[in-house]
Design a binder for these strands. Structure first.
Lengths: 215, 215
DNA sequence: TTATTATCGATAGAAAATTATCGATAAATC
DNA sequence: GATTTATCGATAATTTTCTATCGATAATAA
């Protein structure tokens, strides 16, 4: 097997790929066999050429006039994102957001399987969330090491986030998906991805403000 | 009053502004009076010049050697984002994610006040979520018009999303914050902002895949 | 007082992302 | 079978975003 060097692509492209994937899975359910960049672009008001460039990085090959084979394209995108192999993950913070994520069934389709939940609050420990028992924080490092967990999800408040991240790093976790609204410091080599709702809200608010102003 | 033309700035800048805001509010709580771009940049591993450029769009003025006055900068960013005036919003979809958003107290700091919750499921109607009664979908349009609601939040599943959005548009809602993983079509002039978790997850997964591959 | 340093603000330059162009090809139409 | 059309794939041009440079200024130190 020729292991080609991992391709680095822009964040923007990376964020558009799941959008295409959603649509493609929908098309697959509808029984469509082929999809063109023009058609995909139409769903999002993107330029067709942008979609073609994005798909290029996945290595998918299309044919003129008919486009890409839906099953192949789904496979190539998933493979490129690393979603073909499901990764086990730990979640820390059994608050509302944590519960919402635990209840989101589709994560497995996106390569993510949340296998355990932890919380520092003794009142939450022992309760069950979507059929998973909330475990005490103290057990996290040992279990993470033993189970070779690579992904940690942080859904605690801003205050506690840094401590949780530090514990995760010590436990051998390599990639952290952070939902806490706090800037976190991590050592080199650890992957940190922030999922901040307020960022998206900022774009919305500013657009609305401009619209209302120009009336 | 000289109403200057609304400034259009890049999405990237817009998404970084709330990050600075979080830090600044933290600094304010700590009693810091001034903050420099260099220091803010350090919190996020950004280039100081990038922060300076971002802040420029808000119209905030700093002084050499000391930086920006924290209170003024917070005010200018909030004003620029439209977060100085709190907007009332309706939320549709009282599932787990909907509940999580309802439970997020800080939205008011970010110009958002969720005043009512709706759901199409009769079993959910009448229940209370964070002290708000879940109302039937049928009442949404009338109430939205009467209360002059500008913002609608969609936390239903992908299937139901388009119908909810259509209803919102008819009800006079101008800006839609969508959490459903579906591409939505909206008429011109309506603002649509998608908050998609899978986008953020895609970046994380791809990074992790590349890290694991290169070992 | 004068020199030094950190930082701002403005302008210019570099890099990255997006869009356009064009030949090739496969299907559809005449 | 020839012509037209939609689309791909590759390369080039454009636009946008990010970074560097430089003079000005305010605080600090000598």
């Amino acid at each position: 097997m020729t292991t080609s060097a991992p391709v680095v692509v822009s964040r923007s492209t990376l964020k558009r790929l799941p959008l295409y994937l959603h649509v493609l899975e929908d098309l697959q359910r509808q029984g469509r066999e082929y999809a063109s960049c023009t058609m995909l672009a139409g769903k999002f008001d993107f330029a067709p050429i942008l979609v073609r460039k994005d798909l290029e990085v996945t290595g998918a090959k299309g044919t003129a006039k008919i486009g890409f084979k839906v099953v192949d394209l789904i496979r190539d995108i998933k493979e490129f994102l690393g979603w073909h192999n499901v990764q086990d993950a730990f979640l820390v913070g059994a608050g509302n957001l944590g519960k919402a994520l635990l209840g989101y069934k589709d994560f497995e389709l996106y390569g993510l399987n949340i296998v355990a939940v932890f919380d520092a609050d003794p009142r939450k420990v022992g309760t069950r969330v979507f059929n998973k028992e909330v475990l005490p924080m103290g057990r996290m490092p040992g279990l993470a090491k033993r189970m070779h967990i690579n992904i940690g999800i942080v859904t605690v408040s801003a205050d506690g986030a840094q401590a949780v991240v530090d514990a995760m790093v010590i436990s051998g976790i390599r990639a952290i998906w952070n939902f806490a609204p706090a800037p976190l410091s991590i050592p080199d080599g650890i992957i940190l991805e922030n999922a901040r709702l307020t960022q998206s809200l900022a774009v919305l608010s500013n657009n609305l403000k401009r619209t209302l102003q120009s009336e």
